[in-house]
Every structure is written in structure tokens, then in C-alpha cells.
Design a protein around this nucleic acid. Sequence first.
DNA 1: TCCATATCTCCATAGAGTTGGAGATATGGA
DNA 2: TCCATATCTCCAACTCTATGGAGATATGGA
Lengths: 119, 119
Amino acid sequence: MEKKDAIAALAALAQETRLDIFRLLVQAGPEGLAAGHIGERLNLASATLSFHLNQLRHAGLAGFRREGRSLIYAAEYAAMNTLLAYLTENCCQGDSAACGAGGCDGSGVTDAAQIFPGD
Amino acid sequence: MEKKDAIAALAALAQETRLDIFRLLVQAGPEGLAAGHIGERLNLASATLSFHLNQLRHAGLAGFRREGRSLIYAAEYAAMNTLLAYLTENCCQGDSAACGAGGCDGSGVTDAAQIFPGD
DNA sequence: TCCATATCTCCATAGAGTTGGAGATATGGA
DNA sequence: TCCATATCTCCAACTCTATGGAGATATGGA
């Protein structure tokens, strides 16, 4: 993952409305939710909702499919895993002694970051 | 963790300079780095550096201690774990069938998010 | 005490992000 | 084809954020 992608994903989540949307999608699971449904649940104007869904989509954190007149949005778990790996890359310079003692897991890499299996 | 804390942490990381600083601290490990050292490595004006270090600190992602004339900053791993747990809270409504198939780990809770042990 | 070093705070400017009204577009049914 | 529904795009006003110069503050040594 490149820096700009990580920043895009973090910025997408660093906003109350989008964080609410994302968590709603995470809770909804892979089946997702219709845009209108999300708007109702969070009480959002359609322009506002559309804007934020686009941000999440462009950041790679949400995908969508059409079902009749509805667009169904769902969280992209893989993107989250990639982001976490980026954040912990080369943790403690791979020095497992330092890592284990004070902080991370000492792997220096971070497959452990896959909190959302399913990639 | 409350929503505002999560947003503060995400917003802190969603900025190129701060993301660079944070990753540098993660790589440095629990011993941390002096502010001046960070500024040199990333070529930042002192006002700019100070501003961003404060943002990270207020977001709970970095702590510091004084050592002589230097302030040594270090990443706060626990805060990251808390943030991840918040993001994945009640994932897939705890429905492990849906979770396992399409995305997360089905736990519905997220101790699995502790990619930075050491809390 | 006086100076150099390390870092911080204040402030003004420039730039980026958020919101919602109005209207456009796409789908499904009569 | 015509209409209702679901969602999107455009735009303008407003608000928040980042940057860096200038100067303040704290520590250590002579």
C-alpha cells in the first residue's frame, strides 16, 4: 500500500458521518445496506450521503452493487487489513526483544494485522 | 472508546506529515525519538513539527518524556489497539456464519484487533 | 548569572473539506 | 411511453486545517 492510499483511507474514516457509515456497514456484514437505508438510519440529506459514500468508495473502504433501483453498499474488509499492515510496517525495526517488551508483536511484518480475515 | 476519540486518532493519522511521524515512532519502538531527531529525519520546521507532535499527543497516539534538553516521543501502542477494536465493534452483528464467509472473523468482538500487544 | 540548545506558542495566510438545495439520471412498473 | 422511486452531480457558503516566521520558555554548562 502506498502512503497516499493509507492517507485516503484514514481521512475517509476521520469524519463523524463517514465513520458512522463505515461502522454501520461493518456491522451489516458482507450483504451490505442500500444507500437509502443508510440515509434513514443516520438521518442524512441525500447530497450529503452521496458525497460521503463516494469518499468511502474512492478510499477503497466500501464497494457497491446495484439491485434494482437501489445501490447496495458494503465494507471492503481487505482494504482495512492492508491499511493496518501499512501502519505497523517494520515495527520496532523488527527487533523482537524491543517489540515484545514495550509494544508490538515483534514480527516486524504484520500479518497479525489481519483482523478482518476473508481476503 | 468514544466516537470523538476514534475520530481524533484517525484524523491525526490522516495527514502525511503526522503519518510519517507516527510510522517513524512505530519503527523506532518504545525507546522513542527526540523531537529534533524527528524534525531532521523528516525535514520539518520547528513550529510545524511541534504542531503535529501535539496533534498526535492529544489524539493519544504518542507520549513523551523529557531527557535533559530533549523531549523523547514514542508511539502509544495501546491507543492503536483501542482504535481498531472500535472500528470492528459488533462486526457482522456477531453472526459468525456471515462473517466467516464474507469478511471479518466472526467474533463480533475484536480482541483479535490487538495487533500491538503490550497493553 | 549568562549563553547556547531544544522545543514550544502565537498569529496570519493559504488551502482543503463539509453541507444541503436544486436539478439531473437511471430503474421498474402501469 | 409516462411516472414514481432511488440516487447522483453541481454549486456556493461556511468551517476547519496546515504552514512557517517571530519570539517565548526551559534545561544544562561555563
